[in-house]
Design a protein around this nucleic acid. Structure first.
Length: 428
RNA sequence: GUGGUCGUAGCUCAGUUGGUUAGAGCGCCAGGUUGUGGCCCUGGAGGUCGGGGGUUCAAGACCCCUCGAUCACCCCA
């Protein structure tokens, strides 16, 4: 047994999954199945994959995501080496926008639809559904300010969940307004809250100056009651944003997607404007946020673009999705079947397995055999464990006659098959 | 980062008020079946009781620290 363990908040994805404590990590085949579903839906939306480095310049994230956000102020794995500040990416939107600008993808004309699947890193305290290395997938539609792009982003996420059979989630939707309406609203909020600021928690008091909109997110009932008469963001939003918001809702209505208009939904990343949304599992509990996203027209210029590049996107958690599937009893990935397991008796037969397995594999069959020189019984047990459809048994007698005993593992029936008919028999 | 709960074989867990060589089920390996898996029977391997320190004649049990897991807060995907 090794004295080394995976780092706290990280995990291995094993063929049969991992059970440590009460928490379980899905088997690798479940991850693959979900990834395939994601790729298929993304393709249906005309999106192509982008893969960006895990390491990014720290400043990209602090500028992009926002200096005052929790992610930047206390959750980054950042380090310095030589003259460069590196960070393990905590999210994907800023890196994707960085790549878009770096490679002048706007010059290709049209709208870029880019999707990704990959690991992200945040130095939070690990919890169920919350890891330090976690996996996000998402879609970024860059270059379009049309409300259809916003709606399409949401619908794409929904379609991925539906493709996997998941439908017990709630979409919460809000508009954050444009670059001007937010400061005006913030000011109004501060004026409203300041008189009773001393009744708020320390966390909320600190936010009053840094990010007052986040106070509305509080789960404390006491604070919620104090905030009852608070000014509503909707009243401070510019007319264009309002119209945009209504358009987005109309498109969702048009395709029958249910959502909840939530004027208190505020996203934790600074780059959002106008559309913000979150998809919450109805069953998962405290880490039940499946996906979140919105419009981030302000990000491009924040990262140095000369003019605004309109963009929308969503990011979703792989672990959350896998958990939700498990909770809904939809995770059932069957163990893959082996076509044949070669059982060898004696040295001559052992020598026969190696080239035979290879030529059968060349013909498209999935084949394995014992590598430990074990007893026949042990080989059969192994074949059974590996869920093989057929056992191919060969000993000195078979080699002499150029035949093999082919046994159907499910029916326990067995027949003699000549070597030149072996592949055909196994392909049945 | 804060608080609660929990760490005993690969896995799920027992282990009486501290008292000899720490147990079970499942899994694994082997035999029963000298060339036939699953079921059954028999046997075997596998544990510095998370780690360190302390109390005691004696600690898996008690105390302290630490690490890890887990749940909640917080935050988010």
């Amino acid at each position: 047994m090794s004295s080394f363990k995976s780092i706290s908040g990280t995990f291995d994805i094993l063929p049969d999954g991992e059970t440590s404590g009460g928490d379980t990590i899905a088997p690798s085949r479940d991850w693959q199945r979900v990834e395939q579903a994601i790729r298929k839906v993304m393709q249906a939306y005309g999106a192509e994959e982008i893969r960006t480095p895990i390491l990014e310049p720290t400043e990209l994230i602090s500028r992009g995501v926002g200096q005052l956000t929790d992610i930047v102020s206390k959750e980054m794995f950042a380090f310095e080496r030589g003259n460069t500040n590196y960070v393990l990416r905590p999210e994907m939107t800023a890196p994707v926008m960085r790549a878009y600008q770096q490679h002048h993808l706007d010059q290709k004309g049209g709208v870029q639809r880019l999707y990704y699947i990959g690991p992200c890193f945040r130095a939070e305290r690990p919890q169920k559904g919350r890891y330090r290395q976690f996996h996000q997938f998402g879609l970024e539609i860059i270059g379009a300010s049309d409300a259809r792009a916003d709606a399409e982003t949401i619908v794409c996420a929904v379609d991925i969940y539906r493709a996997l059979g998941l439908d017990n989630f709630t979409i919460r939707l809000n508009s954050l307004g444009d670059a001007e309406s937010r400061p005006r609203y913030k000011q109004a909020l501060i004026e409203f809250i300041t008189p009773f600021a001393d009744q708020l928690s320390e966390v909320s008091r600190n936010r009053l100056e840094s990010n007052p909109m986040r106070i509305l997110d509080t789960k404390s009932e006491k604070e919620q009651s104090l905030l009852v008469g608070a000014p509503k963001l909707a009243d401070y939003i510019d007319e264009e944003s309002k119209a945009h918001h209504n358009e987005v809702k109309a498109y969702l209505d048009a395709v029958g997607i249910k959502y909840v208009d939530d004027p208190f939904l505020v996203r934790g990343l600074d780059y959002y404007s106008r559309t913000a949304f979150e998809i919450e599992s109805d069953t998962l509990g405290s880490q039940g946020s499946l996906a979140g996203g919105g419009r981030y027209d302000l990000l491009s210029t924040e990262l140095g673009a000369k003019q605004v590049i309109p963009a929308v996107g969503f990011a979703a958690g792989m672990e959350r999705l896998l958990m939700a599937l498990e909770a809904a009893n939809l995770s059932g990935g069957e163990k893959t079947r082996l076509d044949a397991f070669l059982v060898a008796m004696g040295d001559a037969a052992i020598n026969w397995t190696f080239p035979t397995a290879r030529s059968l594999r060349d013909l498209g069959l999935d084949v394995a055999y014992d590598l430990k020189g074990r007893s026949m019984k042990a080989q059969l047990r192994e074949a059974n464990r590996q869920n093989a459809r057929f056992m191919v048994i060969v000993g000195d007698e078979e080699l002499a006659s150029g035949t093999a005993q082919v046994k159907d593992m499910d029916q326990s029936s067995q027949k003699t098959v000549s070597f030149d008919q072996l592949a055909n028999e196994l392909k049945r």
